[in-house]
């Protein structure tokens, strides 16, 4: 069984803004192994979000090759897959956490966590698993609360629980602590570490250098290019 999870070869994403062309990421080439904990650092506009979007397949590169290695030993070229296959890929392998939490305010914490399950008819998840996940993020006492009844830190923990409920292989977090205070940011990163220790690959884009340094591998981006990649093999 291969250790690799992702291989990126010359991934470039060009956005058009009027007549201007903006390179979100520019020729990214790297490997990500299973079970890695990676922080992406870099100034605003360096391409951190684009990088995560590429990995999570919610955006596709203008050029380059993205390969994913599932557990069965196959090798999937994501950059050549059809949209509905990509949806399936995300459903089974990717968990997203956003800076803005993106919780549905009309639903309770449990219902928010259960939301991804509505779409994954194929994958069997045991009953009460969402409750278990919420307990894991320390919100066992907040199951029926709606987002607006929760604090920011609690909301982000619900979002993390939501990203975990599908038991994905990879957790992609885009500035997860941007809207949180230090204490809460600490809690979130502790969670990431815990998930990583359970075998989940975690990729976090962040501004918070202190927290970023807790990751084993740190990638610095600037102008869409990797300027430093330390801790990796």
């Amino acid at each position: 069984m291969t250790k690799e999870l992702f291989t990126l070869e010359g991934i470039t994403r060009i956005y058009k803004r009027g007549n201007e062309e903006i390179k979100g990421v520019d020729g990214l080439t790297l490997k990500i192994d299973k079970g890695e904990y990676i922080s992406i650092l870099g100034p605003s506009g360096a391409g951190k979000t684009t990088f995560l979007n590429m990995l999570g397949c919610i955006d596709s590169p203008t050029s380059g090759k993205l390969i994913f290695y599932p557990d069965n030993g196959e090798m999937i070229e994501l950059t050549r897959m059809k949209e509905n296959k990509l949806d399936e890929f995300r459903r089974e392998n990717i968990g997203f956490v956003f800076a803005d939490f993106f919780l549905l305010h009309s639903l309770t914490a449990t219902e928010n966590v259960e939301l991804p399950l509505i779409f994954s008819s194929g994958k069997k998840v045991e009953d009460g698993y969402s409750k278990k996940v919420l307990e894991m993020v320390g919100l066992g006492h907040r199951l029926t609360h709606k987002p607006l009844q929760l604090s920011g830190g609690e909301m982000q923990r619900v979002a993390v629980a939501r990203s975990m409920v599908n038991q994905p292989k990879v957790l992609l977090a885009d500035e997860p602590t941007a809207n949180l205070d230090t204490g809460n940011s600490e809690v979130i990163f502790n969670l990431f570490e815990e998930l990583n220790s359970m075998g989940m690959t975690v990729v976090v884009a962040t501004h918070a250098e202190e927290l970023a340094k807790r990751a084993r591998r740190i990638i610095f981006l600037q102008d869409g290019k990797i300027v430093e990649d330390k801790g990796g093999k």
């Binding site: 999570g56 919610i58 949209e83 509905n84 949806d87 399936e88 995300r90 459903r91 089974e92 990717i94 997203f96 956003f98 993106f102 939301l115 991804p116 509505i118 779409f119 994954s120 939501r162 990203s163 599908n166």
Partner: peptide
């Protein structure tokens, strides 16, 4: 968009 990111397909 969030639902799509979480794996919801167009059909969903």
């Amino acid at each position: 968009g969030v639902m799509r990111a979480m794996g919801a397909g167009r059909e969903h």
